[in-house]
Design a protein around this nucleic acid. Structure first.
Length: 975
DNA sequence: ACCGCCGGGTGCC
DNA sequence: ACCGCCGGGTGCC
């Protein structure tokens, strides 16, 4: 059903197909999208986690002499079906870790294997115990993995062909095969005879939690001064990050799990060896918490570690030299040298005896630098600087600049320049000269969610001093240039995931994919955690020398989330999912300690992670003011209560009917509808206008009526704030369509499902029949407008609005300058609130999902302004903006209605409780007494606990998921 | 493959 | 000899 194809057609993972991986299974695809739970723990992935080891079988690989792929003793190999082989349709290829064919499985064995693989009865993995030095054939140890229910079929099929699988040996459940081998196993595996140490789920969980915790190492605590052209002083932890990033970009070490052994490069996980040196990632994951300044740090990196054409020579030498001198040598000799001294600039260090060496060494690379006195900014700004002061040089030289106040003395960009930078298209923030004769990529591509696009532009103009000639191109909007030449002349190209994906998807005219970039930065990089999403594929297919992932949440729910990230980083051999899964994911999820250690060392190697709680030199990285959350109960008026009870009783009746019929989940949209109406009534009676859509779901509708009904349901689902995600891709809905069974999916996703299940496609959620022609699309939204108008006409207050207004007026009395966010999931509610705000003379602004980007930026800037007369209130729709949204001007938050997902609430609070917040933040949650809202709170609490403990634990089974949902519905409606 | 298998050459010792 | 035996050709799927 959720057909997956890890083959070449997906364009990632190398040019190989792993048919055993190639598809999910219909029966297991029970990943209901969570309408109450919004995480994706019920993933629709291949259910590899449910696979067990059936057993092992010895076989032979033949035809070695026809292929170039070579293998080591004990090397892992991949088995790949080759149905189009002209000699045998059952052919099964054997490939080494690099994807080079080694041989074929001998045909007698290939026959049952082909059947097993083609019917997805098992995944078959191989290890060649005596892989080296075979001319014609070699043995192969195969392990069979699959779902318990398929085990017998596998055994039977093998038996039919005269093969008998050996049952899994005790202690070999982890499937590394090492115990099976009579020869000596690879060094990273437990020695033969010893069983791998397995951990309990509890242990595993706590290890996981620690995975990304403050990864401290020497090379991560060193600081480096920000480039002079950054007009802002970097915070200490940002300097550390910068130093670490520069180090990573000039990384000459072997990637993790590789060793050099007698002229070969050897992978200790797979036992693969090759002559060619495996490339390390020149980059990694900057996994700092939100608000620690990943953007600024990255801007500093772009300026500080500029590539000047030839493949890395200047920076490399510079950096190696830098670290050799300041990092390793000095620190070692002088013990705990204050970190700041590592950053000493050329001039100041020459005064000390020790540093003379430094100067000598450096000057051999940069004779002109040490001879010429550094010109003052004012002197050199326009003089085109003759000689040695090439623009690139200026940019990279910042590594050695002491912070002398020189940087801070730089002028802020002129308003004209600011304006220019904001326009789409090329904008030259500065005027200096650049050398266009340089070769090789020079452009950094930054991809971010649309919501933070303007933040990047702001920060670029804010922090880059005017003496830098920086070409920025915002690759966005319908008029974006598709000319790769133009893009390649930029220093920074900024775009969004949506643009990236749509360019990639639309016939090959994506200039982003034609270029080789100096550097690609994925901001909010966890956006690509779903390997099947188009944006992920598009990102994985970018070519770049250096690759960065910026994210506050590197692992959201499961280890699986990491794979796309690693694949993007092109860490051999993990870009190929099979090796990632066999060497890390499966061992870890099965509780193998060695596997966890591998994972830890991998993460440690490529990640810098600091949380808001992290400390640097004993001080917290971020000293955020306090944050308090109050729950304020609201009592409905008699009148409101009557309406509420009426709707509740009606809904309760319908839902109990579904329960007795056992069709609760099939009437999913209706249940959601009832709950939505109740939640709306808690806010304001006018929110609940579309009662018509719920009046029985008779099947005998004319198509037009049915269509209308379905469209209404879909709108309901989409606007219900249930945080709906597509059950197929687990991402937010794009091109939502609704099925006749009233479930909403992304159109492309569900079409793929239907296609792959021809002719009897079933709904992934309720197993009802599914037909392409029955999908109903969502018409363009105009609904918001109408309801706003409607509510304007006959305005009445509500208990909640009264409670809010009371609090606001009280607050204004105490402090008229204080700024508030008023947050709701219902934009109509926000509109209703506008009326009393106006009446009471509040100046307010508004931000919701329906606003075009330009208006949003305006609203944010306006609200953030400290000028007298600027708005003191922002009406904010809960999910507007996304993580990057910075509303630190506010110190009070009024959350008008509880969200299904407490994480969404927290994220919203973080918009003002973040770097830059100077005051204590007070949050007030309005909750109606004796209502669905109270019940939601208790579910939120459960969910919080679950989120804290869910990581790495086994995915709940389909029936557990169902039961949970059913229980939640019962809780919510008091059944 | 220092095998097995095939099929042509060959045929007392 | 409708055999045995010899030795060259050959060899994945």
């Amino acid at each position: 059903m959720f057909s997956k194809n890890y083959g070449p057609s997906t364009g990632y993972g190398g040019n190989r197909t792993y048919s055993c991986y190639s598809s999910g299974d219909v029966d297991s695809a029970l990943g209901f999208e969570d309408f109450l739970y919004t995480d994706d723990t019920s993933g629709t992935d291949e259910d590899l986690d449910l696979f067990v080891l059936f057993g092992n079988l010895r076989g032979n690989v033949v035809g070695l002499r026809y292929y170039t792929g070579v293998v080591n003793n004990n090397e892992m190999v991949a088995l790949q079906r080759e149905p189009n082989n002209p000699y045998d349709k059952n052919a099964v290829k054997v490939n080494n870790v690099n994807g080079d064919q080694v041989g074929h499985i001998k045909k007698e064995l290939a026959a049952p294997l082909a059947y097993i693989i083609d019917n997805k009865l098992a995944r078959v993995e191989g290890i060649v115990p005596y892989g080296a030095k075979n001319a014609f054939t070699m043995p192969i140890q195969m392990s069979f993995w699959g779902k318990e229910e398929n085990k017998q079929a596998v055994l039977d099929r093998l038996k039919m062909h005269g093969f008998k699988m050996a049952p899994p040996l005790k202690g070999s459940e982890l499937g590394f095969g090492s115990n099976l081998l009579s020869g000596r196993a690879g060094p990273s595996y437990s020695a033969p005879g010893h069983t791998a140490v397995q951990m309990t789920t509890e242990q595993l969980k706590s290890e996981f939690d620690k995975l990304f915790e403050d990864l401290k190492e020497d090379d991560k605590t060193r600081e480096i001064q920000g480039p002079e052209v950054i007009g802002t002083q970097l915070l200490p932890h940002q300097k550390q990050a910068l130093a670490w990033m520069i180090l990573r970009e000039n990384n000459k070490e072997l990637p993790p799990f590789w060793e050099e052994r007698n002229n070969f490069f050897y992978n200790t996980l797979t036992n693969f060896a090759e002559k060619e040196r495996p490339e390390n990632v020149l980059g990694g994951i900057l996994a700092d918490d939100m608000g620690l300044g990943k953007t600024l740090t990255t801007i500093a990196l772009i300026l500080a570690n500029f590539h000047n054409g030839k493949p890395l020579p200047v920076e490399k030498i510079r950096c190696d030299q830098f670290y050799k001198v300041f990092g390793a040598t000095s620190v070692k000799n002088e013990g705990d040298l204050p970190v700041k001294d590592h950053n000493c600039n050329l001039e100041s260090s020459t005064s000390s005896g020790k540093s003379e060496t430094v100067q000598a060494q450096l000057s051999s690379f940069y004779p002109e630098r040490t001879k010429a006195k550094k010109p003052k900014y004012s002197e050199r700004s326009d003089s085109e600087e003759s000689e040695e002061w090439l623009p690139q040089e200026t940019r990279t030289s910042c590594n050695f600049q002491e912070d002398t106040g020189f940087a801070s003395a730089l002028a802020a960009p002129s308003p004209a320049l600011k304006k220019k930078a904001k326009q789409k298209g090329t904008s030259s923030i500065q005027l200096a000269k650049r050398d266009d004769s340089e070769e090789g990529p020079r452009t950094t591509l930054i991809i971010c969610p649309l919501s933070v696009l303007s933040n990047w532009i702001d920060q670029l103009e804010q922090h880059i001093s005017p003496d830098v000639h920086l070409n920025l191109y915002v690759y966005y909007g319908p008029d974006r240039s598709k000319d790769p030449e133009l893009l390649s002349r930029q220093d920074i190209v900024l775009t969004t995931y949506n643009i990236l994906a749509s360019d990639y998807g639309s016939r090959g005219d994506s200039p982003l994919h034609k270029l080789k970039w100096l550097r690609v930065v994925l901001d909010e990089g966890h956006t690509i955690r779903n390997p099947n999403a188009l944006q992920t594929k598009a990102a994985l297919n970018l070519e770049a020398q250096r690759r960065w992932i910026l994210t506050g949440t590197p692992i959201q729910n499961s280890l699986k989330d990491l794979w796309s990230l690693l694949s993007f980083l092109k860490l051999k051999p993990f870009a190929d999912r099979e090796w990632w899964h066999r060497t890390i994911q499966r061992p870890v999820t099965m509780g193998d300690q060695a596997g966890l250690r591998r994972l830890q060392s991998l993460i440690k190697n490529i990640t810098l992670r600091r949380t808001k709680m992290s400390k640097i030199k004993g001080k917290p990285v971020l000293e955020l003011p306090e944050r308090k959350v109050f729950i304020q109960h609201v009592v409905l008026t008699e009148e409101e209560r009557q309406i509420y009870q009426a709707v509740k009783n009606e809904g309760k009746l319908a839902i109990s009917r579904y329960f007795s019929e056992g069709t609760v989940l099939a009437h999913y949209a209706d249940v959601l509808g009832v709950l939505l109406r109740l939640r709306q009534l808690c806010c304001h009676p006018h929110l609940c206008t579309n009662t018509s859509s719920f009046s029985g779901t008779g099947v005998n509708n004319t198509p037009e009526e049915l269509r209308e009904k379905l469209v209404n349901k879909m709108k309901l689902v989409l606007s219900s704030g249930s945080d709906e995600e597509c059950a197929v891709c687990l991402d937010s809905l794009t091109f939502p369509v609704i099925t006749h069974c009233a479930h909403v999916f992304c159109k492309p996703c569900i079409c793929e499902v239907i296609q792959s299940e021809q002719p009897n496609a079933k709904c992934p959620l309720c197993r009802n029949e599914l037909r392409l022609e029955h999908l109903v699309e969502c018409p363009l939204e105009e609904s918001d407008f109408e309801s706003v108008k409607k509510s304007d006409q006959e305005w009445i207050p509500s208990s909640k609005i009264n409670a809010l207004m009371h609090a606001l007026i009280q607050l204004r009395k105490e402090n008229p300058a204080v700024k508030c966010l008023i947050v709701s999931q219902f934009t109509t509610f926000l509109s209703l609130i506008e009326t009393p705000l106006r009446e009471s003379g509040f100046v307010f602004t508004r931000l919701d999902g329906s606003m075009p980007q330009k208006k949003r930026v305006e609203a944010i800037q306006c609200f953030q302004s400290s000028q007298a007369g600027s708005p003191t209130i922002m009406l904010l729709s809960l999910k507007a903006g996304g993580v990057g949204l910075n509303l630190t001007a506010a110190s009070r938050v009024f959350l008008m209605d509880p969200a299904w997902n407490p994480a969404a609430e927290d994220q919203c609070f973080d918009r003002c409780h973040r770097l830059g917040q100077k005051q204590a933040v007070v949050i007030t949650k309005f909750v109606v007494k004796n209502s669905v809202e109270e019940n939601m709170l208790s579910i939120q609490n459960k969910k919080r606990k679950l989120a804290a403990g869910a990581f790495a634990t086994k995915k709940p089974t389909a029936s557990e998921v169902k039961q949970t949902k059913i229980n939640e519905i019962k809780t919510l409606i008091d059944l």
